[in-house]
């Protein structure tokens, strides 16, 4: 690695200095770039290039022939079809957005609660912790979906929208008896039935929050104890502000996770169109879906990020 700066015209030198700084800094910069080089190559060739190509596909009609792929530009017709004619897109999209809206808060609250429970030592903590992390190894795979939809068969009745591991139909009946509107009863049923599935999805989140909670220094709590703060006050005034950055990470992770889940119906649509050979439509769907997800994540990041204060930069 050549690290010496050749004597150069002053303007050039100034430009170089502003870019890299001193000689050591320059060498560090080059080393840093070398460290990320493999990733950088991968990101360009296996991420950026395909992304751009995928965006281009969405505006074409793709036909695969023996001579190679043929692209005929068709403008926005794929998008038009998606939004105005596709019978499933809007319903599937709204259902997955709705799912995320009620699932994510429950996931975050539950994983916070679990992190609090698992935080202090108690007899059998190692075992309990291992059990709590256990869903991590299964929930990310197809096993859980197969289990829910094909083995447990709670949703075997045709027309049923979602598959649940536990079902509690009596609860929504109860809500109906109280003369609440039907839509509320449906929502309650959805939340109650999906609750255990949601618990199953929070393995990674529990790990992240547990790590964050364990990283809060004991001195803040000691000071609070001396001042006579109650446990409730300590939770809201110390624990919560200190783990707020992680809560944000958990929030965003949960949103992305449920949007890209195997069971998510838009994801299934994308793969189905792909396996049917309708590549351009699959690409359009993927592009639109991804932009929507990105917008939602950005919105959450802006809304929640404003409330998060970083203790250490």
């Amino acid at each position: 690695m050549k690290s010496r700066i050749r004597p150069a015209a002053s303007g050039q030198k100034a430009a170089r200095r502003s870019l890299f700084g001193s000689r050591i800094q320059r060498r560090r910069a080059i080393h840093g770039l070398l460290f990320i080089l493999p990733w950088l190559i991968g990101v360009i060739f296996f991420f950026l290039v395909p992304m751009v190509q995928s965006a281009a596909y969405a505006f074409c009609k793709v036909t695969l022939t023996a001579q190679g792929d043929q692209f005929r530009p068709v403008g926005f017709s794929n998008f038009l079809y998606l939004f105005t004619q596709d019978p499933n897109f809007i319903t599937n999209l709204s259902s997955s957005v709705l799912n995320v809206l009620y699932q994510v808060p429950v996931i975050v609250i539950f994983s916070l609660l679990s992190a609090m429970l698992l935080r202090r030592p108690f007899p059998g903590r190692t075992l309990v912790r291992a059990i709590f992390f256990f869903p991590v190894i299964i929930a990310s795979g197809v096993v859980i979906t197969i289990l829910k939809e094909q083995v447990m068969m709670n949703a075997a009745v045709s027309g049923e929208q979602e598959a649940y591991m536990f079902a509690a139909p009596s609860f929504s009946y109860f809500v109906e008896q109280l003369h609440f509107p039907q839509s509320l009863a449906d929502l309650v049923e959805r939340v109650i039935n999906g609750f255990f599935d949601i618990l199953w999805k929070s393995g990674v989140q529990i790990i992240l929050l547990l790590a964050a909670v364990n990283h809060i220094g004991a001195s803040a709590y000691e000071a609070a104890d001396i001042e006579g703060a109650s446990a409730w006050e300590k939770l809201w005034k110390i624990t919560f502000p200190m783990i707020a950055p992680t809560v944000l990470v958990v929030l965003i992770y949960s949103i992305i996770d449920s949007f890209t889940d195997y069971g998510n119906r838009i994801m299934r649509m994308i793969s189905e169109y792909f396996s049917l050979g309708q590549y351009e439509y699959s690409a359009t769907l993927g592009l639109v879906y991804f932009v929507i997800v990105l917008l939602l994540v950005g919105l959450v990041n802006v809304l929640a990020g404003r409330r998060v204060q970083y203790a250490v930069e």
């Binding site: 990320i36 990733w39 950088l40 990101v43 060739f45 296996f46 991420f47 290039v49 395909p50 992304m51 190509q53 995928s54 596909y57 792929d69 992305i256 949007f259 890209t260 994801m267 994308i270 793969s271 792909f274 590549y279 699959s282 690409a283 993927g286 592009l287 879906y289 991804f290 997800v293 990105l294 994540v297």
Partner: peptide, 23 residues
């Protein structure tokens, strides 16, 4: 570049799988 890294986490592989497959 770090923003790009975050981007790769957020964007599911499904959105660019077709060109990746062709490549």
């Amino acid at each position: 570049l770090f923003g790009l890294l975050i981007f790769t986490i957020i964007v599911p592989v499904q959105t660019y799988i077709i060109p990746l497959f062709v490549n």
